[in-house]
Every structure is written in C-alpha cells, then in structure tokens.
C-alpha cells in the first residue's frame, strides 16, 4: 500500500496519533522500523491506559495479518521486542498473557511471487521473542540493561 493511501486510511478510519505511529512503523514499506520510531512508540506505552490499548490493538492486528502482508508481522515482532525492553510494564503483562499469538508464529509460512521464503525471518524472530517472554529473569535483566539487547533490536534497514 502506498504512503498516500495509508495516510488517507489513517484519517478515514479515525486512527489516533499513537495508532498512526504504529501503523507507519509496521507498514509494507521495505525499510524500517527505525530505532527512533520504536523508541517513540515505547515511550507512548507509558502515557495512559487508553493509549496503551490503542497501540497494542494495532500491533495485535498486524501480528495476525495474512501472508501477503508478512512485513506487517515481521515489523510488529520487532516493535513488540523493543517495547518489551523500553516500554511500560503493561507490555510485559500483555505479552505473557497473549504469548500464543507469538508462539504460533514460529511456523509462519509465506512464499512471495519470486518464490522467496519470506517467512524465515518471522519464524526466527517469533522463536527468539517466545524464548525471551518465557524467561522472566532474562527479560528483567535486559529491561535493566540497554546495552545487552540494543544491538539485536536496532539496525533494521531492509526486509
């Protein structure tokens, strides 16, 4: 979907500012999400409960998107990973409670028009994220210490 169509949809479907940010960060564009966008979204999860749910609703929709929109899924895993580290404690609770959404992505499949297996990155990301969410101690220590995970989550350029 083009940038123009996306911005029209943002207006006509009545998405909030926070939701527009998440939609843009997890779009079908072949680049991103960049660190600054993810940092901004993570900060917004602290704002208030309504904003938190607005953000999670979009991430949830994107995580359950169809194969053709595999970039939505992959980028949402990245944003969720980031928010698990830098976002509010509510993100951690949400991820634990709904872990089956991420767990079941470990077998995600999609072959694009060129015959490329574009599901591979999603399967790997879902596997890593599942392991992290289930390992309370590791998640706690990574939430305390930025350096240990920053290199993994940042530096996403092209998919």
């Amino acid at each position: 979907m083009s940038k123009v169509v996306r911005s029209v949809k943002n207006v006509t479907k009545g998405y909030t500012n926070a939701q527009v940010k998440v939609r843009n960060a997890t779009s079908n564009d072949p680049w991103g999400p960049v660190g600054s966008d993810m940092a901004e979204i993570a900060q917004l999860t602290f704002a208030d409960t309504a904003t938190f749910y607005e953000i999670m609703d979009i991430l949830d929709k994107r995580l359950n998107d169809k194969g053709k929109n595999w970039r939505h899924v992959l980028k949402s895993l990245k944003v969720l990973d980031y928010c698990l580290h830098e976002g509010s404690e509510l993100v951690v609770t949400w991820a634990r409670k709904n872990i089956y959404i991420i767990k079941t992505l470990r077998e995600f499949q999609h072959i694009d028009e060129d015959g490329r297996d574009v599901g591979q990155n999603i399967r790997v990301s879902a596997k890593e994220l599942t392991a992290l969410i289930m390992d309370e101690e590791r998640l706690r220590s990574e939430r305390r210490d930025r350096k240990s995970w920053k290199s993994r989550v940042s530096g996403i350029d092209e998919h």
Binding site: F52, Y53, M56, D57, D60, L90, T93, W94, K97, N98, I101
Partner: peptide, 8 residues
C-alpha cells in the same frame, strides 16, 4: 490484566 481486543 491486559487482554486482546477481539470480536468474539
């Protein structure tokens, strides 16, 4: 706790 918002 926070749950998913789905149309059952």
């Amino acid at each position: 706790g926070p749950t998913r918002n789905v149309d059952m």
